[in-house]
Amino acid sequence: MTKILLLGGTGDALRIARQLTSVDVYSLAGLGKVPDDLPCSVRVGGFGGSEGMARYIADEEIGLVIDATHPYAAQISANAVNAARHAGVPCWVLRRPAWQPRAGDDWRMIDGWDELTMALAPFRRPLFTLGREPLSHLDEIPPHQFWLVRCLDSHEDTERARIIAARGPFTLEGERALFALQHVDVVVSKNSGGSATEAKLEVARERRLPVVMLRRPSLPAADREFESVAELLDALHLSR
């Protein structure tokens, strides 16, 4: 049986991990909760770049690498493709489709933090859903702004920011309540795709609020690419 190395850390990856076997390995960067109820082994920590991952693939006799990391985990995705190629094994990638703007949406596309800062200048109560990056900029909050930052990391609130440690999926009702209670006037988001965190976009649409959207990074081509967990699992079952 082909031994699989699954690179994860997302809800989609966890769904795949639950379909693996005892010979397979689910690899996490170590951020967030580590599952203890999977049929496969769980590995926590980095590999030391693509070369380190290639050595791990060879040493552990991995026959297939599956990248189911976040769409913005550009470095690990690049390492996975390069390591698999160097080790001579296939690399499959789960890349869920990006969200697309709908009628009534006001999306303002950006490529990095400097552009983000300029895009947020007219607003007072932004909701950040970018992960932990805003936590390193809490001392840069403009005098007229109060930030609401939602991420996986616990962090103390400040006089100018409230930090919400939470993991999706988020409901439409819950997002409506959050926006109303916190007087959100702009949403800051990655274009992650999927349904788990999409409700914030629906609420922004309802309230006619702009969304400052970070463009997806360019990712290297893999041997096979899948848009859904079901599609990938079907191919996996056929290959085994």
Rank of each mutant, 00 (worst) to 15 (best):
I16D: 02
A58L: 14
M53G: 05
P35N: 05
I66P: 03
G32A: 10
P39C: 02
V65M: 09
L20Y: 03
S27T: 02
R43L: 08
D24I: 12
Q19F: 05
P35V: 03
F47T: 00
L38S: 14
S22I: 13
M53A: 10
R43T: 04
V25E: 08
D37Y: 05
Y26H: 10
L31N: 09
L31Q: 12
I66W: 12
E60A: 15
A58C: 14
V34D: 03
E51T: 06
A58I: 08
D24K: 01
A54T: 02
G32Y: 02
L28F: 06
E61C: 13
G46Y: 06
V65Q: 07
L64I: 11
V34W: 05
S41L: 14
A68S: 13
D24Y: 06
D59C: 02
G45C: 02
G52A: 14
L64E: 00
I16A: 03
A17C: 10
L38Q: 09
T21Q: 15
I62K: 01
D59A: 10
E51G: 14
C40I: 04
L31D: 10
P39Q: 04
A58N: 15
Y26L: 14
E60T: 06
G63M: 11
A29L: 13
L38N: 15
A17E: 12
D36K: 11
L64G: 00
C40H: 05
S41V: 10
I57Q: 00
L28I: 09
E51M: 13
E51P: 09
E60Q: 15
V23E: 11
A29W: 05
V42D: 10
Y56K: 05
A29H: 03
I57L: 00
A29C: 09
R18M: 14
V25M: 05
A17N: 09
G46D: 01
D59E: 15
V65L: 14
V23M: 01
G63H: 09
S27D: 10
I57D: 00
G48T: 07
S22H: 10
A68P: 06
G32C: 12
E61P: 11
V44G: 15
V23P: 02
L31P: 09
L31K: 05
V42W: 11
V65R: 07
G48F: 11
M53C: 13
I16W: 10
I62L: 00
V44E: 10
V34P: 05
D59H: 11
G63I: 06
L28T: 08
Y26G: 15
C40D: 05
A58H: 13
I62M: 05
